[in-house]
Each structure stands twice: as C-alpha cells, then as structure tokens.
Design a protein around this nucleic acid. Structure first.
Length: 1043
RNA sequence: GCCCGAGUGGCGGAACUGGUAUACGCGCACGACUUAAAAUCGUGUCUCGUAAGGGAUGUGGGUUCGAUUCCCACCUCGGGCACCA
C-alpha cells in the first residue's frame, strides 16, 4: 500500500492548482458571484503563528464549498502593511520600512501558501504600494472636496520623553507603551474626518445587514445614539454669593472675546434624555470649560476625571438658573463629572431620578425632589397584561405587616393562582388609604392591633388579574405596619378559600414574592438606597402630573421651548499621524492660495504654516509618494520625520506656482483598510480605484442568474451524480432587503470574517468610507458587507496570548512539516467552536492526523467494489449515514460549526472502514465533503479513483484535469435519510427507564400500546395509576404515574 | 460600576426551537497483531452501587410530565466601556 506522504502530495497539488489557476476569480462574470473576505494581515516581523490561519481556513472551507456549488468565487488576500511596528523597527535598526515590509510579506506569503488556502493570489494588494495608496489619497481628496475632511485643534496624547504624538492604542494605562512615561495632553492641529455626519446612518443601517448580534451591539454602543432634548435655562448672577460680583461672559467687561457668543444671551443649554423629569431639577451642572466660558472664572476643576478617584466634586459658580418649567431658581455648579465634549456640556441635575446627580446632591446637600412614581408592567407569566382584555384602573393599597414578636412578615399565598403577595386591596369610596389598608388586613388575616410605622410611597402596576379576568392598572399607596399583638378575628370562609396566610422571614420573602413591583417595595422597606430611574407616572409636575413619563417627554419639551435632539457618543475621526510609515496626506500649504484656511491671524511674516491656507494636491499629481529618509524618528517638535526633508516638503504651489509646503502628517493605519475590499475587485486598474462594472458585479448589484455553460466546469458530469444545485435560488432573496427598509439597496461582500478586536473601529470606519463613496455614486451599494462573523483567538498552550516576546509562538510551518497542511487545517477547525478563544494543544493534533490516515487507508484498499454485487444491509446503512453526513456537513459549514462537521466526517470514516464493501461512489461523495477541510488528500484520493470513476461515469475522460475542487457539491437525498426503525425512549415520571424500537409509520396509539406492554414499564407501573402519557414524536414517551 | 460572552468527565469539547447529558477527539486501561516495540485495530473509560437503582452540566431556588437549554438570585473566569446626562 502506498503511504500517506503528506509532504510530497501537498507540494504536488499546490503547484498543479497554481498552474491551472483553479482558485482565480473569473472575470467573465457569467456565473453568480460569491465574495468571501478575511481581514488582510499586518505582516509583522514575528511571522505567522498558528492563530493567523484560523480565519483563513474557516473562510477557505466556505469559499471551496461555494466554488463546488457553482459560484464564481472571489477570495482575495493582501497586506495591510503601513503601521507602527514596522516603523518602530525602522527607527531601531535604520532599515528602510519598504525593505522590512518586503521581507515580512515574503515570509507571510510563503507560510500561507503552504497551507493550501484557495486565495486568489493574482489579486494580491499591498497598502504601502504607491499604486494602491494613490487611491487612498484620492479618496481623501474626495472627503476634502465635500468638506468632510477638515482641520481642528485637538488634544492628542504626547509622550514628553519620546517627543512623539501617540495613537490611542499606544497609550497603556495612561503611559507611553514604549518607554512607560506618563503621557501628556497637547493641543495640535489635526486633520479630522467628519464621521459624525454619518452617525445616524451608521446606526440605522445596521438593521439591513447580517452581522452577529454582538457585533451590531458593539457598533451601536460605540456610536452611542441617544435621543433627548436640548433645553435652555436662563441664568443670572445670584444676589448673594461667595465670589463677589462679576458679570457674565461677554457683557460689559470686555475681557472675553465675542466668539464665546453662545452664552452672551445669559442662558445655558442642557442636553437631557429625560425632559420628563424637569420638575425635579434642583441644580444645573456645567463642565468646567463651559463654566469658564460663561463666567470667565476658573473654578479649579478638571473634567478629565482621574480614573482612580471617581469622587464627584463641584463648585458653586455663583450663578442661578431659572427652571423654565416651574420658574424655580436653582444653583449652578461647575462639576468634574460633566464632559464638555458630549451634548452641550451642561446638564440639569435631577437627583431623584439619576444616579450620578443623586450622588452629587447627597454630597453637597442639595434637595432631592421626586417627580416620577414607578410603574411596573407585567409582561410575562400569568400576570402578563392581555391586550384584548379591558384595563380597569383602581385606587389601591399595599400593606407590609410585621409580626408582633418575631422578624416575620405577613404573606398571602393565593390558592387558585400562583401568586405570592403582601396584603393588598382596593380603596372604597369615602375611605382614606390608611383606613382601607387597615380594613383589608383585618378582613384577609383577622389581625387588627396595628400600628402604622411608615408609609412607603406610591407606585403603579399594570397586570392581569386572573381571578377577575381583567387587566388592572392599580395605583398603590404602600404602608408598613407592625402588629402590637397576635389577637385575631375569625376570617370569613371566602377569604380562607382565596389564600393561605403565612408568616415569612425576610429570606423567605425574597423567594416568595412573585412580581418585581412587590420586590421593589420590599427593597424600599429594607432601606434600599437606589433611586428610581425607570419609566413611570409624573407627580409634582404641575399640569403634567399623572401623565406617563414617556408621553410627557415630548409635551414637556414643547412646554419649555426646548428642541428634540439626538446625540451620539461617536466623535469625529482624528486622521493625522505625525509619523513616517503611512500615506502622506495629499495637501499643500500656500500663503496665497486659500482654498481652506486654518489661519485666524492674517499677518504674514515670511512663510509660516500657521498663516497658510491649504489646497488639495491635484489628482493628476497623485500619488504623493513617501520619500526616503535617513532618520525615522519624529522631529523634536513632534512633527513627522517628513518635515526634515526640505527637498520633499518645499514644493511649488500647483495653483499660483509660488512657494508652498507639503503637509507632513500621514494617515492612520485604518485608512488603507477602509476600502481595500473594493480594490480586490479590480486591483490592476490605473484609471479608477475600481471600475463600476467590476464593483457592480462583485458587490452583487447585477446578479447573474443564468448558470455557466457546461464547458466552464471541469467536472460537468458530476452533476449527473448529485442533484443539481441552483446557487442563485439558495441565496437570500435580494428584493426583500431593498423594499423592507425603504433605504438604498444593501448588498456587498457576501461574507466577511474577522477578529473581535476590529468589530468596532475598523468595521465602522470602512462602513463610513463606503457610505461616503456610495453618496458620490462611486460604489453601487449602501453597505460594504452583507454578513460579518468573528473568529476566536488561538492561545498558547498555557492559555496566554502568543507573542514573540513571550517565546510561545507556534509556527504553522513546523506543524505542516510534521503532520501536513491538511492535518493542521483539520485540527484548527476541529479544536473547538470557531468563534471562541482556545488554547493550542500539541497533543490533540494527532487525532485529525489519524483520521486522515484512516481516510487514506480506505482509499487505498476498499474501492474495488463490484457494482453488480447485491447490496448488503451494512452497505445500505452506510448509504444512509453518508447522506445524513452530507446534510450535516453542508449545514454545519454554513453556520461555521466546523468542529461538529468534522466529527460527523470522522464517524462516517470509521463506519466506512468497518464496512466490508464500499462503492467508489460512496467514497467519492465522502471525499467531496471532506475536500473543503483537507483539500490535498481529498484531491489525491479523488484522482486515485479515476479508473473507477471512469467506469462509473462520474469522472470525464481526462481525470487529471478534473479537480475535486471543481466538482459539484453533493446533495443529500431526504428519502435516504429517513430511518425505517426508530428508537423511542421510555420515561417514567421523567426518568429514562428503557427504550423500544418502533416502525417509522407507527401511530401514536400503537407506540403507546407497545410502551405499556414493555416488561420494564410493567414493573414500574404495577399497581399504580397512570395519570397521563406524553408522546414526543420520534423521540420519547413519558408515562406519568400518580405518586 | 455598566454592557457582552462563558462555566458540562482527567483534558478540548457535543447536545437541533425544553425531550436518552457527556457525540467526536486527546489521554488512560486492557486485549489482538508482533520475537519485541511503534503504528494499527478492538473493548472499556462521569460517579456511588454486586444489582435494582441513586446522584452529577458553577451555587441556591423556581416554572414544567420533563431543564445544560426558560425565569429569579448569587459566585467565578474572559472581553469591552468607563461618570455619555
């Protein structure tokens, strides 16, 4: 028997595949397309470790399956090669980053190629290639033209030791990642991209894409949409204050420049999401910067809160604000817990209904005014409000009654309904609530020597009253009584039938209570300090009292003359880096030609950048190439090292031909990766970043519906064997998407898999660019990616992250050498759920290897079955199992459940080996579903089948040209999957006792009869009454006995 | 503090929308083949019990004929955010 020589075989097929170009996406556009994408790697100096290929293999399995399903698949790869590690390496060694990048990509390419991933290497791109970044710069110019790129003074992180501006990701624990020095904040002119202009769409359009829920959530949290209102509060200087009189900013004193105009009107705007609580405002809190603008005074507070010390502090500004809702005058504080960057930098303090305001008010003894009474709505269980039943409002009471000598409380356990409550009831006409409570207690429990200790406020509850068969909207006043003694009257029969009276300890109470509203009241009694921040009914709110808080929001905004406003957490994107190894920002500064200006001072003293306006580099001059430099260290002033090259910096102004200087900032690492998937569709294009024709095809706007002509497929005859697959029909119905949302058609890359670390920033940035290009009609879809999934990290054996510095990196090449690429691929897919982090295990890898050896042995020895021999039962079982496996593998791949797919393949292989005879036909189907996981061995064995294949007609005359990877994906036969005999589990009182075998078409009655006649069942049921039996088709029978 | 995810054999992990908990793989033990070893194949492998049967899916409750799965409270680990009004 020929040995399984993975080295020889893998090399052989890799070179044949490459020669035949079977993984190259076809530009003929005749077949339906499939675009699968992985995040292109950053070619670090560490080389590839075994974690990198996990997503590549996962998407490779999917891509290979799609090819076999008849799609024209684009599965590309490239290099995201700009960035800090390479630059830092260059600083350290003086090596040209271009050279370093070349070396690294060569290493990576070699490593990846040895894994047999079906990437289309003919479209390889590199973000550091001027032919590529020409278009990155070009897109930036479009942003500039549309006014979405602008300059602003921004605070950046500055390392005083390295004299360098740091990216956020270089700041670890407020210190420089490299030298550990505490970073400072510095103001610096920065290029910005106005991503906030797209915040609304970036949030809403998530409805239209198929991302994993947690990814959508991550995006939504990052964007941080919040709907509220801006409300203006008039301000005056308090008559008596501790700071002496001062005028408001801009008025009279002339010390404040007129640009701080928004506060000249002597009012302050607050942003709030709870305008409904405005009657509960007891102070105004300002961000320190806003307070300073308003008064001209520095209150010695920073809003940049120290993370260690989260104490809220504030200083009275000496101002007074007028609540527009009720005219009350309230103090104005400068506080550290309000940020000037969010909303308006000013908030209305409502301590009764906001945790932070509450904390602040407690500390500074400010009044707390309750304006919302909680409303609880039961939405689950038997108390759930039933929409079709009437809602009856009742004035009611709730009473908590304590035992006269023990720490126990009265509870009512309802007999007909599953309720555990305190004493509650309605208030009759002419009764006060307290009277009603006393009467109710006596009536229901007989106790009457009550002492009212305190009232616990009022709450409201909507629930379904099962005994009365109606919805209730109860308004409960809550009382706490203690009994003086245990004297008790007789309780009426009716009451006795309704419920049981229990004395419960505090611990028991918590389990006993059945609704949230009751628990809430109990917690109040326990001195629960949390305030109520939920929805409710307004009180102490003038004419709005009694109104639902949600409803009141809009009306109150109107009433106080506020404005509805949606705010986002998302900030504009700081797009400048004072670095060398990035795309130069294509802008020139000229004193004369002011397209965009950043100068406020118009004096001219020679050429000074800060006096100059900027003009975009003309498109014909792109790319602005990175010049070679000697030193990669940023300048002392924190500018990019590019600033040290006068030859490059000094240019002629493209407009006036006068003296001009280049922008020396470069783009962040995110730039090139924001649009790379577009370039793959047309990577050689010199005139456009990609042609409309290619974009339309690959982003699926012009779907091809006809199937390819026969000649296109090398194993066209394979179809005669397995059922026809119609890829177009299998896809999600495209029409639905566009009509459902009413928004622009959402389509794009079919499936994008990447790391969890990129599900917020990278994904958001590239969605932003894409939408921008869509608005310019440069891309045909509104969203770049239709579907997004994530993979988990592979950790080192100890569970730590793999890194060169820790010395725990496992190089896939070593594994490939020992076990082969197929084994590595199989193991990485088998080791655990694809989306979960998992530790590498050198021990376990032998399992997949043994499996492949088994597959090999079967292929070498068993495929000599004579088609004329009668089918044995065993063979029939194999066929059934085979079809079940085809189904499972097909479905599991779609859900990325690769581990269970492989487990099914293993089970099938074991059975196949055990079988005495096996048709080449069965084996062929097995190889086909194995092929996406282990492409080399599958191909080799497939080719080995050629003689049988010819005889059986599933291979064409020239077998060497018919790769298994171009064959048609097998389809399972539903009829062959159905079992004739089914095992039924018999449970007695929910415990498994035995099992019986029934015929697939047996009726429920027959099955029950069989079950009851069973020996084991008889033993258990003897002398007992059968209460009921539960039959779950094809699964089990549960016989319930009475005791 | 908040949000998200996860806790199942010696280990990695299975279990579809509530229906035989521990598939598959690793490891381990025994057996076959072998002069022997490796490889391979076979059998066994949650736990207590001779058995009948009982007990186990982080802990404690609940709902249900039936719960790894649903609900409530809590504990541990991993990831993200950090006063977002």
């Amino acid at each position: 028997m020929k040995e399984y020589d993975h080295k020889k075989l893998e090399k052989k097929w890799q070179s044949i595949w490459e020669k035949k170009k079977i993984y190259q996406a076809q530009n003929s556009f005749k077949k339906p397309k499939y675009y699968s994408l992985i995040e292109f790697p950053y070619p670090s100096g560490d080389g590839l470790h075994v974690g990198h290929p996990r997503p590549y293999i996962g998407m490779d399995v999917i891509s290979r399956k799609r090819r076999m399903e008849g799609f024209n698949v684009l599965y590309p790869i490239g290099w995201d090669a700009f960035g800090l590690p390479t630059e830092n390496y260059a600083i350290k060694t003086g090596k040209d980053p271009r050279v370093v990048t070349k070396e690294n990509t060569d290493t990576f390419r070699g490593q990846i190629k040895s894994l047999g991933i079906s990437f289309d290497w003919s479209r390889e791109i590199n973000t550091t290639d001027p032919k590529y970044y020409k278009w990155t710069q070009w897109i930036f110019l479009q942003f500039l033209k549309k006014g979405l790129a602008y300059k602003a003074k921004m605070t950046i992180n500055w390392c005083p030791k390295c004299k360098i501006g740091l990216a956020n990701e270089e700041v670890v624990n407020n210190s420089c990642e490299r030298c550990g020095t505490t970073v400072e904040k510095r103001k610096k002119e920065q290029w910005m991209l106005a991503i906030t202009k797209y915040a609304d769409r970036l949030d809403k359009d998530l409805d239209d894409v198929d991302y994993l829920p947690q990814i959508k959530l991550g995006q939504r949290n990052w964007i941080g949409r919040s709907e509220g209102a801006e409300i203006e509060f008039k301000i005056t200087v308090k008559q008596k204050n501790n700071f002496g009189a001062f005028a408001l900013g801009g008025k009279g004193q002339g010390t404040h420049d007129a640009q701080n105009h928004s506060f000249v009107s002597q009012s302050v705007k607050v942003f709030t999401t709870r305008p409904d609580t405005i009657f509960g405002v007891t102070f105004i809190a300002l961000a320190p910067e806003i307070a300073k603008k308003l008064t001209g005074k520095d209150f010695g507070i920073k809003s940049d809160v120290d993370r260690e010390n989260k104490q809220k502090i504030g200083v009275d500004t000496g101002l007074e604000a007028k609540n527009p809702a009720n005219g009350e005058m309230i103090p104005v504080f400068a506080v550290n817990y309000v940020s000037a960057e969010y909303g308006t930098g000013a908030i209305m303090g409502v301590p009764a209904h906001d945790e932070r305001d509450f904390e602040f008010a407690k500390k500074y003894n400010l009044p707390i005014k309750e304006v919302i009474e909680p409303v609880f709505v039961d939405t689950e269980g038997i108390d759930a409000v039933q929409k079709d039943k009437p809602m009856v409002e009742r004035e009611a009471i709730l009473a908590i009654v304590k035992h006269w000598s023990e720490d126990k409380y009265l509870g009512l356990k309802w007999k007909k309904v599953n309720w555990g409550t305190f004493i509650s009831g309605g208030v009759e006409k002419g009764q006060t609530s307290e009277q009603a409570a006393r009467a109710e207690i006596e009536e229901e429990t007989g106790y009457f020597n009550l002492k009212l200790i305190k009232t616990l406020g009022r709450y409201h509850s909507k629930f379904f009253h099962t005994p009365k068969n109606e919805n209730r909207f109860g308004h409960f006043n809550t009382f706490y009584f203690e009994l003086e003694n245990g004297k008790q009257n007789e309780i009426s029969k009716e009451e006795k039938e309704k419920h049981e009276i229990l004395w419960l300890s505090p611990k028991e109470i918590e389990k006993f209570l059945t609704t949230e509203s009751l628990r809430y009241r109990w917690n109040i009694l326990q001195g629960y300090k949390k305030i109520y921040t939920g929805r409710g009914i307004l009180v102490n709110s003038g004419k709005f009292s009694g109104m639902d808080s949600e409803k009141a929001k809009k009306e109150i905004i109107k009433f106080v003359g506020g404005k509805e406003k949606t705010t986002f957490k998302l900030r504009d994107w700081i797009f400048s880096r004072q670095r060398y190894w990035g795309e130069p920002i294509p802008v020139i500064y000229c004193e004369n030609c002011r397209v965009g200006s950043l100068a406020s001072d118009k004096r001219k003293q020679g050429f000074r950048l800060e006096n100059a306006g900027w003009i975009p580099v003309p498109e014909k001059d792109l790319p602005v190439e990175l010049p070679k430099v000697k030193n990669y260290q940023p300048t002392d002033s924190g500018e990019s090292p590019l600033a040290n090259i006068p030859k490059w910096v000094n240019v002629k102004c493209p407009q006036c031909k006068g003296k001009a200087k280049r922008e020396t900032d470069t783009m962040p690492n995110w730039a090139g990766s924001s649009w790379y998937y577009l370039r793959y569709t047309d990577d050689k294009n010199k005139k456009e970043f990609a042609s409309q024709k290619n974009l339309r095809y690959w982003l699926g706007v012009d779907p091809v519906r006809e199937r390819s002509p026969q000649g296109d497929r090398s194993t066209a005859s394979g179809r005669a064997f397995s059922n026809e697959v119609d890829p177009v029909r299998e896809r999600s119905p495209q029409g639905d998407r566009s009509t459902a949302s009413g928004r622009a058609f959402s389509n794009g890359v079919d499936w994008y898999n990447g790391g969890n670390e990129h599900t917020t920033l990278h994904l958001l940035y590239s969605r932003f660019w894409h939408k921008f290009l869509f608005d310019l009609k440069l891309v045909p879809t509104n969203e770049p990616y239709m579907k997004r999934t994530s993979h988990g990290l592979i950790l080192a054996e100890g569970g730590e992250k793999m890194s060169k510095s820790k010395g725990n990196v496992i190089n896939p090449n070593d594994i490939v050498k020992i076990y082969g690429a197929d084994t590595l691929r199989l193991y990485e897919m088998f080791m655990g759920p694809f989306d979960q982090a998992i530790a590498w295990s050198e021990e376990a890898i032998i399992g997949p290897r043994r499996f492949l050896e088994k597959v090999w042995r079967i292929g070498m020895s068993k495929c000599l079955f004579d088609k004329k021999s009668p089918m044995s039962k065993r063979h029939f079982d194999i066929t059934r199992l085979l079809h079940k496996t085809i189904k499972k593998v097909s479905e599991d791949i779609e859900e990325m459940r690769f581990n269970t797919a492989i487990s099914a393949l293993m089970i099938l292989a074991t059975e196949m080996e055990k079988a005495e005879k096996l048709t080449p036909e069965s084996y062929k189907l097995f190889l086909q579903i194995l092929a996406p996981f282990a492409p080399h061995i599958a191909e080799e064995l497939w080719q080995n089948l050629a003689p049988q294949g010819l005889a059986f007609g599933f291979l064409k005359a020239r077998p060497s040209s018919s790769s298994i990877h171009s064959s048609a994906w097998p389809k399972w036969d539903e009829n062959l999957i159905k079992d004739e005999e089914i095992k039924i589990i018999i449970q007695i009182n929910g415990k498994v006792r035995t099992e019986i075998v029934i015929q697939a078409d047996d009726k429920e009655e027959d099955v029950k009869k069989q079950a009851l006649a069973n020996e084991v069942v008889l033993r258990h049921t003897e002398g007992k009454e059968i209460k009921k039996t539960i039959y779950v088709k094809d699964r089990l029978i549960n016989i319930v006995l009475s005791n």
